[in-house]
Design a protein around this nucleic acid. Sequence first.
RNA 1: GGGGGGUUAGCUCAGUUGGGAGAGCGUCAGGAUCGCACCCUGAAGGUCAGGGGUUCAAAUCCCCUACCCUCCA
Length: 884
Amino acid sequence: MDSLRIRQSFHGFFEGAGHRRVPSASLIPPGDATLLFTNAGMVPFKDAFLGSEAPPAPRCVSVQRCVRAGGKHNDLDRVGFTRRHHTFFEMMGNFSFGDYFKKEAIAFAWEYLTKTVGLSPSVLWVTVFTDDDEAAALWKSVAGVDPSRIVRLGEKDNFWQMGNTGPCGPCSEILVDQGPAFSCGRPTCAVGCDCDRYLEIWNLVFMQYDRNDAGVLTRLPRPSIDTGMGLERLASVLQGAESNFETDLFLPLMEAIGKNTRIPYGRGKGEKDFAYRVIADHVRASTFLVWEGLVPSNEGRGYVLRRFIRRAMQFSLDLGLPTPFLPDLSRRFSELMASPYPELSAGMDRVVSVLASEEERFMKTLETGLPLVQELAQAAKKRGEAVLSGEELFWLYDTHGIPVDVVMDWAAPLGVTLDTEGFTARMGEQKEQGRRSWTGGRPTFPVPASRLSAPVLFEGYERLESSGRLLLLVSGDREIPSAREGEEIWAVTDVSPFYPEGGGQVGDRGRLVAPGGAVEISGAYRPYPGWIALRGTVTTGTVSSGETVRLEVDRSLRAGARVHHTATHLLHAALRKVLGAHVRQAGSLVLPDRLRFDFSHGEPISESKLREIEATVNLWIGEGAPVGVSEKSKAEALSGGAMAFFGEKYGDRVRVVEIPGMSVELCGGTHAGSTSEIGSFFILSESGVAAGTRRIEAVAGASATRTAIEWREELLRIREELKVPSGRILDRISADRSERESLERELASHKSRLFDLETETLLADSFEAGGLRILVADIECRDLADLRLRMDILKGRIPKGAVILAGRSGGDRVLLLGWASSDLEKRFPVNVWVRTMAQTLGGRGGGRPLWAEGGGSPPPSWPDFLREIRSAMRDAAENAQGGS
RNA sequence: GGGGGGUUAGCUCAGUUGGGAGAGCGUCAGGAUCGCACCCUGAAGGUCAGGGGUUCAAAUCCCCUACCCUCCA
C-alpha cells in the first residue's frame, strides 16, 4: 500500500466513523512561544483540549505534518543513522473532544489496522499503563487481543501529559512484531526494548485527568482521546521495508540524489547510506518550513532551519554531490507531495530561491574557512605540533561556522590532525553557558487560563467605549481584591472595547473608570486565547474587583492604528503588484503613528520601484474604496482568494478584510471604513532585515501629514539659509561646492608658495652642531597637516640633522612635530626632545626616533623657551659626536 | 537570551606596541592601438558604522548603540 493510499484510507476510515476531516495546520504553531514547531498531531488542538477554545467538531481526524528538532527532544544528530528518526514526518491521528473514549478508540484503531490495512493480529502487541485495568480489559473484550500480548509499562512509556499542569492521562500503544531478524539479539529483547523488533506504530492517549499546580490529579468530567500514528512507520510496515527510508516516501528522493553521485544508495546496506538519509530527511523538512514562510537565520526557528540546510550540505560533500543540489531535490520532493499537498506547488519558486541562496551562503562560508584552516595548520606545524587544538577548532566553528567534519577533510592533506576531544569539551561549555543564560522565555501571566470561565467579549470593532464588570485584578505575581492610587496592575473585564496586541497591531490605550477611581491603561494584551488583559496604573482613588467600570479607548491613537493597518494591507497588495506574487508577509507592526512591514523578497528595491509602490498605494487611497469586513468559513475565504499566512489555526470562522479590487486578507485587526480615510502614504525607508527578507517603514494619515509638514519646514529653512527661490536649491548647492573646491585649490597653491618662502627664513634660524643641522622654531599654524607640509619641505633641504616645529594655533594649544634624518635613529632620537619639550609645556608627546609628535600649552616666553631648547640640543649633538 | 568575529573608497580588502588613511578592481581623463582585452600616465572618490571616553595625539585602546556573519539556548 503506497503512502497516498494510506493517507486516504485513514481519512476515509474515520470520516466513515463520524469524524470531521481537518487539513494539516501550519508547522509553525500560532501564538505559542513555548513550542518551536508543530511536533505532534494534537498541537493544533491544544487549546481545544485545554478548554479555552471550541474544537472544530466533537470528533476529528487529521494527517498533520510535523517537525521535531531543537528543544527538549533533539534527535537531530540521530537522523540518518537510525531506521526511524526524522526531522519531518506526518502524524495520522483521530481525536475525540469529550465525545467517545477508550472503548471506541481501541475499537477504531484495531479495526483500521486489522481490517482496513490488513495487518495480521498475529503480529500485533499492545501496551497499557501499569494500573490501567480498564484499557487492558477493553483490548481483550473489544479487540479480542490475547492477554499474553497485553503488556503493562510504567509512567515513562505509557503516561502522557502536555505540560506540568493540565490534561493528562495513561496511554496505550500498538506494536508490530517485525520478527527476529529485526531484533537486537539480546536475550531480554521483548516489548519495550529499544530495538526495531517490536515497533511502536500507534499511540492512543486517554486524556482523563487534570493535573493542578500541586500535582494532584482530578478526573475530567468529559475525557478525551488523542492518538498518533507515524505515516512513515506504517508505510514501512505495510511495504515490508527494512526502514522508513525504504518506502515510496523516500526512495524517489534517494534516486534523485543517486543520479548525481558516484556512490549509489545501497538500500540501507551501503557505506554512505546515512548521508543519503540525512539529505533526504532534511530536504523534506526544509522545503516545508521555507514554504511556510520561514527563512534561515541565526536565531530561533530560523536557526533550526539553517541547521537542516547546512547539515544536508555537509553530508552532500561526503557523496561528492555537485552544488547546488538543494533546488532540484526540493522540487522533486514537492512533486512527490503534490497529491496530498496541492498547495505546495504555488510557493515552490520562492522555496527554491531561498534554499539556493542559503546554499550559496554556506559555500561562501566554507570558502572563507579554507584559508583560515591553512593558516592555522601552518602555524601549528611551525610550532612543531601538527595538531589543531580544540580551542582552534571551536573558534573555526563558533566564529566562522566551519563544521569540524569539514575541517577534518581539509586537514589530512595539510598534514595536521585534529584534537576533536578538546573541541567537544569546549562545545559542551558553550552549551552549558547557553542553558544557564536561558531565562525561560517571556514572562507568563500570573494567573492560570482556567481562572476565567468564559472568554472576554471583544466589542472594539463596533465601539470605543463601553462598560463591563471588573473580573480580576493582578498586581505583581498575584491576584488582589482591589488596587489603590499609584499601583501598577493588570485588569480583566468581562467585556472590552480594547484591542489586544496581535496580528502586528499594537494594543489600545485609554482609561478605565470605576465608581471610586480610575486607571490609565497603557496597553492591552492577550495572555491566553480569548483573554484581554489591560495593563495600567491607578491614577486616582481605588478600584475593586467586581465593580462595574467604564472602559474608554483613546480615540486618536486607535484612529491612527486603523489607518496604518489598512495602509499595511494596501502596501502588501501594492508590493505584490509591483514586485510579483512571491512577496509574502514575514512580519508586521502597526502603531498609531507608523507602520513596519517585513516581507519576502530577495534583493534591495530600487528607488523607482519604491516610488511606484508608494504611488500605487496613494492611487488606491484616492479611489476611496470601502473596506469590507465579514465573517466566513475558512474554506470560503480561501477560495475567494484571501491571503493566508502561517500562524493561523483551525478556527472555523475567520474574519476577512476585503478592499474590492485591491486586497483580501484574513485579519483580526481594526480598519478604516474607506481607503480615503488614510489620506496619504509615504514610504520612509527600505532595508534588509535578514537574507531574503526586506523591510519597509511608512507613515499614513495624520502622521503622513505631519511628516510632509516637517519636510516642508526643513526645505523652507534650507531655502532661507541659502537665500535662493525654490527650485534653485540644487543649482545653488552645486555652484557653492565648485566654488569651494576652486578656493581650496587656490589656498593650497598659496600655502605651498608661502611655505617655500618661509623655509628660507626658518633655515636662517637653524644652526650646526656636531655635524648636524638643527632647527627649532615656532610658527603660526592651524593644524598638524600644515606642520607636516612645512616639514616635508624642510626635510628636502636638510640632508643630515633634525627639525622640531612648534605650531601656535593662536589658542591655548601648541602642536609639536619632530623629524630626524634617517641615520640619526640611535645618535639623536628626536622623540626624546619632543617629549622633553612637551613636558616643559605641561603636555606630553612622543613617537618614533625619526618622527614624533606632541602638544602642550604656550610657554610664558617663546624666545626664552626656544633658547633653552636650542642650547640643550646643541650640547647633546656635540657630546653625542664626541662620544661616538 | 548568552558567546565569538566583523563594519576602512563604488566593489574586494590591507593597515603590526596609538604618531602623515592605503592596495587591487571598477569609474573618469589622457596616451598607446586599425580596433578590443591588455598596457602606460594621471585624476576623482573616505563622517575609517554611529555616539561617548582615555590621550598632546585614536581607523588603532576602553564603554555604549546599530547593523552583518557565526555558534549555542
